[in-house]
């Protein structure tokens, strides 16, 4: 419906095209970007650059964050020490660290990837920790009564029990990472969808800006859907314990 309003506004010339481009102009711009590219970089290259960054940053964040969160969930002392630190830094937008990260790691891929790592890391720590501490005591007791050792309970009860929280954390983290990455690319990158938009803007190519926003939105939705499908596939028992 929104699309129809948008289409009509262009057809009837209601909106000023220099300020807000219509759908036909946007699609034309998108076609040009996909085939010839803009400033010699094609859409596919921008998308690939963005996806590569998010997959590396998010991936390392999950791989490091989950064990740390599990350890915090299992050990009261660790939890007591690190909870306040996590609480302190969690609310700070990851983007606020980008100047320092550029200073430390230089201009290039590393600052953005490190920033995404931290964004995912905090979310995954909290998720994994909540997954462990949320285990129903009767499940642990039942396992003990069935003759399981501590190690066995850890592997066969606590870990599978924490999986739903971990998956939900991953879904949240990938959303946050995607948005943060685009914002970071706006200010400090040569490639990636954010950078493409920034360049398009400086050349007053508003139709490319709008096209970029749509692509970002679509990829955001696709990433979320992938995570949801993964949840359905790997943890069908979620929320039914």
């Amino acid at each position: 419906m929104l699309f129809i309003i948008w289409l009509l506004s262009e057809a009837l010339g209601i909106a000023d095209p220099t300020f807000f481009p219509g759908p036909i102009e946007t699609i034309q711009g998108g076609w040009e970007l996909a085939t010839d590219g803009f400033q010699r970089v094609t859409l596919a290259e921008h998308v690939f650059a963005s996806l590569r960054r998010i997959l590396i940053g998010f991936g390392i964040g999950v791989v490091v964050g989950v064990p740390v969160g599990l350890a915090m969930g299992l050990n009261n002392t660790l939890r007591a020490i690190f909870d306040p630190l996590i609480e302190l830094f969690r609310p700070v937008p990851p983007l606020a660290f980008i100047p320092l990260l550029i200073l430390w790691f230089g201009i290039g891929e590393t600052p953005a990837v490190v920033m995404l790592f931290f964004a995912a890391f905090f979310i995954m720590v909290i998720a994994a920790r909540a997954g462990v501490t949320g285990v129903r005591l009767s499940k642990v007791h039942a396992a003990y009564s069935l003759g399981a050792s501590k190690q066995q309970i850890l592997r066969n009860v606590i870990l599978p029990n924490a999986l739903p929280e971990i998956f939900v954390g991953m879904r949240v983290a990938i959303g946050v990472c995607w948005g943060t990455l685009v914002a970071a690319e706006l200010v400090g990158a040569q490639t990636g969808l954010g950078a493409m938009i920034w360049t398009a803007r400086t050349f007053f190519r508003n139709e490319l800006v709008v096209f970029g926003i749509i692509i970002i939105g679509v990829i955001g939705v696709i990433l979320d859907l992938i995570m949801r499908k993964a949840e359905e596939r790997f943890i069908p028992w979620r929320g039914r314990g």
Binding site: M1, L2, F19, F20, G175, V176, W178, G179, T180, V182, A183, L186, G194, I197, R201, N206, V209, V210, G212, I213, I216, G217, G220, V221, D224, L225
Partner: peptide, 22 residues
């Protein structure tokens, strides 16, 4: 239905709308 779709779009991804003058 519209609700379901739009809440999946990362708002940060909409940030460049700041550049589009409306």
């Amino acid at each position: 239905p519209a609700f379901g779709f739009f809440r999946l779009v990362p708002v940060l991804g909409l940030l460049p709308l700041i550049f589009v003058r409306f």
